[in-house]
């Protein structure tokens, strides 16, 4: 393999109170890759992303972004290292307008200077957002909100985009659109770590994936390998 990975998760365990959600999880994401973490409900996928974003602290292990251990980094500084989180259920600021949400994405000082430039970029990528710039984000459809959430994440000028269940709670037609968005983000050169239950579809847009079950990595490999794996076909794809 070539250079060191962009993101390394090293032996992370984490949980809430006495409940353990992750047991000694390790994975890596290389620059330019799109990687998925797949698995059923309650496997610990969201917890994993929350650990990477420092929303919760791991009880063991560490996360390293481009050689910087995230252990001592507070949550609000993670974004400065180039990690942007598109949270589960989008978590927009519903009463702020689309443009204000995007402005929040460029909140940290280094990003503020490039606000205009990136806003144009996001509007070019998602013309729909430009049309709705003055609308309260909470009043848009689910797919549009997902677009806005991705746009907000891109406003920080990230290297790595963490996406938590971008298809959750969306109608099947919209889900397809959301995965198309993921493809476009990839085409723009972003590195993506995506967490999904919608295994069939996510494996179409990523290079590699890890299967997470009850807090442990059970399997990993290229998308093609996982799609061909008998266990995954039986347990998750119903084939």
């Amino acid at each position: 393999m070539s250079a060191a990975p962009m993101l390394e998760v090293r032996g992370v365990s984490a949980g809430y109170g006495t409940f353990r959600a992750l047991f000694d999880v390790s994975l890596e994401v290389r620059a330019g890759e799109a990687v998925a973490v797949i698995g059923p409900n309650g496997a610990g996928k969201t917890t994993l992303l929350r650990v990477i974003s420092k929303i919760i602290a791991p009880t063991a292990g560490d996360v390293v972004m481009e050689g910087t251990p995230l252990g001592p980094v507070p949550a609000h500084r993670v974004v400065e290292l180039g990690i942007a989180h598109v949270p589960e259920h989008r978590r927009l600021f519903p009463r702020l307008t689309v443009e204000e949400n995007l402005r929040m994405g460029a909140f940290h000082p280094a990003a503020r200077a490039k606000f205009r430039e990136r806003l144009d970029f996001v509007y070019e990528l998602f013309p729909r957002m430009k049309e709705r710039r003055n609308q309260a984000a909470g009043t848009m459809s689910g797919g549009e909100q997902q677009m806005c959430a991705i746009g907000r994440a891109l406003m920080s000028g990230p290297k790595l985009l963490l996406m938590d269940e971008p298809s959750a709670g969306l109608a099947p037609v919209i889900v397809q659109q959301v995965f198309n968005l993921v493809k476009r983000i990839r085409a723009e050169g972003y590195t993506v770590l995506i967490v999904e239950q919608n295994i069939q579809q996510v494996l179409q847009v990523v290079d590699r994936a890890y299967l997470l079950e009850v807090g442990t990595i059970k399997q990993s490999g290229s998308s093609a390998e996982l799609l061909a794996s008998p266990e995954i076909r039986r347990a998750y794809l119903g084939l």
């Binding site: 609000h76 974004v79 949270p87 927009l92 009463r95 929040m104 994405g105």
Partner: peptide, 23 residues
């Protein structure tokens, strides 16, 4: 910007922190 930071925090502290707001 403090206003945006606080409006965002009042709606969702985690999301605000994840875009770089020191809540």
């Amino acid at each position: 910007m403090l206003r945006y930071a606080l409006e965002a925090s009042s709606e969702d502290e985690d999301a605000a922190a994840s875009v770089g707001v020191n809540v």
